[in-house]
Design a protein around this nucleic acid. Structure first.
Lengths: 131, 131
DNA sequence: CTGTATCCCCAGAGATACTG
DNA sequence: CAGTATCTCTGGGGATACAG
């Protein structure tokens, strides 16, 4: 039987990261994923692969720059794959990886929360400024 | 019996908000809550009320300006309450509301995800730049 | 201790134009 | 269609000083 505590096993399985610490890499990662555009791009990819233009249309108001930039980050971090089909014109499809899908489940909660609780928040804001 | 579909009932219970739409208020709310400091502040308040200074110590690297600013936002939106005790020196406690606790459960997932998957992400980044 | 008020700077983000 | 390259500019956010 193991002589390790649960915490010790946890620390071995993965180094211990703590986003409360300023210098911890997970703080920076949290900054990357706790982001409006990341939520929306992953949300749009939840139902399957999407082309650049499709994403742009679905995520109203996102600039091409921010879309490309967000996709590049997600690709770099292994959350999304990019597949180029050499046709004329060229076709590019983005698809979530397993890791990306894992994160999607979490950030989807954020989007849903915002939509579901918008009314309550607006109500409270109205009270706050009148009061 | 009701003649409404599930979707219709849902639409009545709350107005329909959709963060994919640029002008929808929920898009702005998503921008507020999908935020590093919000995650960390709510995370620090998860175990009970905390004083200003306690929060500042627990969330390493947050400036006083960002802490106060974040707390004001959370207070305005009804996620956190602020209680002042008129002593010398003054004492201020922050505590999550029910709504805040509801959001905390969601954003906590973000923090945990970042910590749990940091290793995988770092691995992939290393591959990405070498490749 | 808690918080407001300034100053300042640079990175984030939009707009535009151009390329394969 | 997909993407890069610039330019610009706002505002996010740190540092500092002061106040109740």
């Amino acid at each position: 039987m193991s002589t390790m505590t649960a915490d010790q096993r946890r620390a071995v399985a993965k180094q211990e990261f703590d986003a409360f610490m300023a210098a911890c890499p997970s703080r920076a990662l949290l900054d990357v994923i706790a982001n409006k555009w990341v939520c929306l791009v992953l949300g749009a990819l939840a139902d399957g692969p999407r082309r650049h233009g499709e994403l742009r249309r679905q995520i109203a108001g996102i600039s091409q720059k921010m879309l490309t930039q967000t996709l590049r980050e997600l690709e770099r971090d292994g959350l999304v794959t990019r597949e180029v089909t050499a046709s004329v014109p060229v076709r590019v499809d983005y698809e979530m990886t397993e890791l990306g899908n894992d994160l999607q489940r979490v950030v989807h909660g954020l989007k849903v929360w915002a939509e579901d609780n918008m009314a309550k928040v607006l109500e409270h804001r109205a009270l706050a400024e009148s009061g």
